[in-house]
């Protein structure tokens, strides 16, 4: 079942058309990878899905994005609630300069979840969900910035799942990490997809092949090909896709 449907989505930075007529189905409880060279629009597309592009002045969106059948760009959409339902993990780990506990508790506190349930339970569940609990459980009061980069990124994932989103968007989440941390995050993604719909932007094609169920290939603001990952990497239909995934283009 499609969780998100983009329909003829166009995006402009001023006069520059960064996305051209993107239509895509994102399946629920699956991992969808977006690949393509730098500047091809894959990150811009990702940020359209939780309207994070709204924070950049001088930009414009045309077309529709349906989340569970609701157009998130319809007038009157509650953007704050949308971003609660669609969480995001960024390229560089960006924990707040606060304690580990406060980082994970940030969302529940802001949304008032802690009034209904025990905050410590939410924090523990989220840290367990992000495979970080065992490493930090003895010192939840430590400064988040004192963790290793890989741990910081898993903390950011814990922070994102603490508000129980339905979708998690990941914008090149491993590009600042070493190979071991990268494998850990990938392992984590496979476990998370049981509960969440995941969309990941990656410049690493092996990562897309290893972790995703569906792959979209972007080139110069267009979605060239979208297919099940297995098909995409074994028998791409477009010549451009084949050139890119075999390393001859991009």
């Amino acid at each position: 079942m499609a969780k998100i449907i983009a329909e003829r989505l166009n995006f402009y930075y001023g006069d520059f058309r960064a996305l051209a007529d993107i239509s895509m189905h994102i399946e629920e409880y699956q991992i969808t990878a977006l690949i393509g060279p730098s500047g091809c629009g894959k990150s811009t597309f990702l940020r359209c899905l939780d309207r994070m592009n709204d924070t950049i002045p001088g930009t414009r969106v045309e077309g529709k994005v349906w989340l569970d059948g609701q157009d998130i760009y319809a007038p009157g959409t509650d953007v704050v609630d949308l971003r609660r339902r669609v969480g995001m993990v960024f390229q560089r780990p960006n924990p707040f300069p606060q304690t580990v506990f406060d980082n994970v508790a940030f969302g529940p506190r802001v949304l008032g979840l802690h009034k209904k349930e025990n905050l410590a339970d939410i924090v523990e569940a989220s840290l367990r969900g992000a495979a970080l609990w065992d490493e930090v459980k003895d010192n939840l009061k430590q400064d988040a910035l004192s963790l290793s980069l890989g741990q910081q990124q898993r903390l950011c994932i814990a922070r994102a799942i603490a508000v129980r989103p339905e979708v998690i968007l990941m914008d090149e989440p491993c590009s600042a990490l070493d190979p071991i941390d990268t494998l850990e995050i990938e392992e984590l993604m496979r476990r998370l997809k049981v509960d969440y719909t995941i969309v990941i932007v990656t410049h690493n094609m092996q990562q897309a092949a290893r972790v995703s169920d569906w792959t979209g290939f972007f080139w110069l603001g267009r979605l060239v090909e979208f297919a099940a990952t297995q098909d995409m990497f074994t028998k791409p239909t477009h010549e451009l896709t084949e050139s890119y995934i075999t390393g001859r283009a991009g």
């Binding site: 924070t55 971003r83 995001m88 960006n94 969302g107």
Partner: peptide
């Protein structure tokens, strides 16, 4: 205060005011 903190706050579903008050000012 890096923009990434603001982004993280907003992406969590915090309002602009909550992001300023709970993330940017403490940082």
């Amino acid at each position: 205060v890096p923009k990434s903190y603001r982004d993280a706050g907003l992406a969590m579903g915090a309002t602009q005011w909550q992001t300023i008050w709970r993330v940017v000012v403490p940082a």
